[in-house]
Design a protein around this nucleic acid. Structure first.
Lengths: 179, 179
DNA sequence: ACATAAACTGAATTTGGGTTCACTATAGTA
DNA sequence: TACTATAGTGAACCCAAATTCAGTTTATGT
């Protein structure tokens, strides 16, 4: 692949993410092209259809989140750290969901897979490590599973104002901290 | 207003709700008209623009939910009943959110107000009654407010499969039941 | 430097759906 | 029944945005 092609592919993906975040998934291809500094035709060279481009944005986004979780699980240092990481992840995910509400919306509008099966699997595995450690430390309520944490992350509200998001987090934490 | 006009207004609103639920908010006005058994022009007589129609569907929908909450609070009979009602409401709201996921999506796409200020207010008041009663009964965790329950209802996940929804409900209930 | 396959360009085409409006039908009234 | 304001009809209009493609440019191997 020619280097200019690779460069443009990256630029287009970035522009698409930025524009979707800012305007919503109803941005025009023209607008995305303009932001990326290329002509529309170039978008179609890399992504045969708008759906493909949106799908790519979604996968990149959820991929970043999964990486986030994996990093948290792989850099577990001090014992007793695990629960703190889980709390941090949940906190960050709510903010991320709020900041990228348009991206989540895009997943609905294009009914595209927000997570690929592969990403979902990686996310689950990483969380299992964190949850197991937190359980050993005695910092997790009995009966709370990695799947529970996972679905809380997925269902983090994206349309609530800051105050309500903080409140949501508190409720959630009450549910997963030891009784 | 002529009776045929009133009748068609109702038919159109119902058709719009049904079609949005089934196909998403990107249904064409043509399709809604067909379902309602009228011509497109009639849609525009009652709703000057598609946005207005969608807004009407949203308000009708959230209005129904608020009525639901009010009924629960007004028919409180046996003492000790309040917490059971709250649990039922939360259970029903998750299912409702899942069943009407497209309606919630419409609120995003048209960035229309899901709840009017008036409906929000009525919902809050009704919940305050239920929460106060549940607190008196000692069936609610300390610190849990009517606003908490309200935001949980609003942020009930709509895209998760049945199993995950049940799990979500369990987590939430753990958080609001007495410690 | 040259050749050429790979990329890019952007005007033109296509498409789909929101919206209009001149005309027809009908409910309500005298 | 006759009148008329109100309501309904649906083909035609309009426009925005997705997609195409013939012509042009450029990266890269020899």
């Amino acid at each position: 692949m020619r280097v200019d092609a690779r460069r443009n592919q990256v630029r287009i993906l970035e522009a698409a993410r930025a524009q979707i975040t800012q305007t919503g998934s109803d941005v025009s291809m023209e607008q995305i092209a303009k932001t990326a500094g290329v002509a529309v035709g170039t978008l179609y060279r890399h992504y045969p259809t708008k759906t493909d481009l949106v799908q790519a944005v979604l996968t990149e986004f959820s991929g970043a989140l999964v990486n986030w979780v994996e990093e948290a699980s792989q850099t577990l240092a001090a014992p007793g750290d695990a629960m703190a990481r889980i709390v941090t992840l949940l906190t960050d995910f709510v903010e991320e969901a709020a900041h990228n509400q348009a991206v989540k919306e895009a997943a609905l509008v294009f009914d595209a897979a927000y997570l690929t099966p592969e990403l979902e699997d990686r996310g689950r595995r990483a969380l299992q490590i964190l949850v197991a450690a937190a359980r050993t430390d005695g910092n997790l309520r009995d009966g709370v599973t990695a799947d529970d944490i996972f679905l809380l992350m997925l269902s983090a509200p994206s349309t609530l104002p800051q105050t309500a998001r903080a409140r949501w987090l508190n409720i959630i934490l009450t549910a997963i901290r030891p009784g």
